[in-house]
Amino acid sequence: MWETIIQITPHAVAFTIPLLVVSLGGLYSERSGVVNIGLEGFMIVGMFAGALTVATLAPSMQGAAVWLGLLMAVLVGAVFALLHAFACVTLNANQVISGTAINMVAGALTTYLARNITGSGNIVIPIALPRQNLAYLADIPIIGEMFFTRAYATTLLVLVILAVSTVLLYRTRFGLRLRACGENPHAADAAGINIYRMRYIAVAISGALASLGGAIFLVTIAGEYSGTAGGLGFLALAALIFGQWKPLGLLGATFFFGLASTVANVSRILPYLAHIPDIVLQTFPYVVTLLALVAFSRSSQAPKALGEPYDKGRR
């Protein structure tokens, strides 16, 4: 049993990391009061931008191209998110419809561009991120062996983003203001906060992180852009809800989901897991999210003004 856990944890972690950063992206947007079901779309944009950058630069730059690909994904994601912000914040559009449009535009537009570039619509990256033992962290007993040996450097990057986000959202003036926009925008406005600007920033960060998640998924697991993120963005959305819109909740939820998905993938080769039907493990994240919604229906931690366009004139 223990051996199995040691064996599958690196795979679970590899799957958890992109999921975690995408759901962190969702956290920024939703904490500011803007529903973001476009996470899947931002991931696709990130995968496209990352794949194109890595494929173009890899011959001349080798390993550095991967990191430039991640950087490019962040930039493109932030710019693409302005579409969502413009609709939701400036035009008071229905945020769910805008998010749906984002998902569809992202998939169709990037596939269109990819087909213009490569002809097939797929962009294979010639090099991926290597697995390595992370300095110092790998030496920690047990935890180091489980999480930081044969790990990707992006694991560390995302954990840093998680830590920074937690501090940013809960320990700084910026974070307090951002959360105020999602809880009670009228009070925030009265206190002199520019709701529109805060929400623009939050949605842009959201797009940047979700897009980064897509690119991390690309360079660690997927290996190619093929016009889809396979529903990972929706899984991250489920994690955001299951984690009740809190950074540490997201860490727990995404690891939980990552583990379930990994076990689902390896259950056929592990004898004592073989009797669990795949369907139970694969639908597990969505079912527990529904159950969590039912369980927390009276005490949901969702931002109070989530999904409501800000109307200055209403009191």
Binding site: F86, A87, I97, S98, A101, I102, M104
Partner: peptide, 9 residues
């Protein structure tokens, strides 16, 4: 997809 976006806005 673009039509949906414009319908939303």
């Amino acid at each position: 997809a673009t039509i949906i976006y414009f319908a939303a806005t």
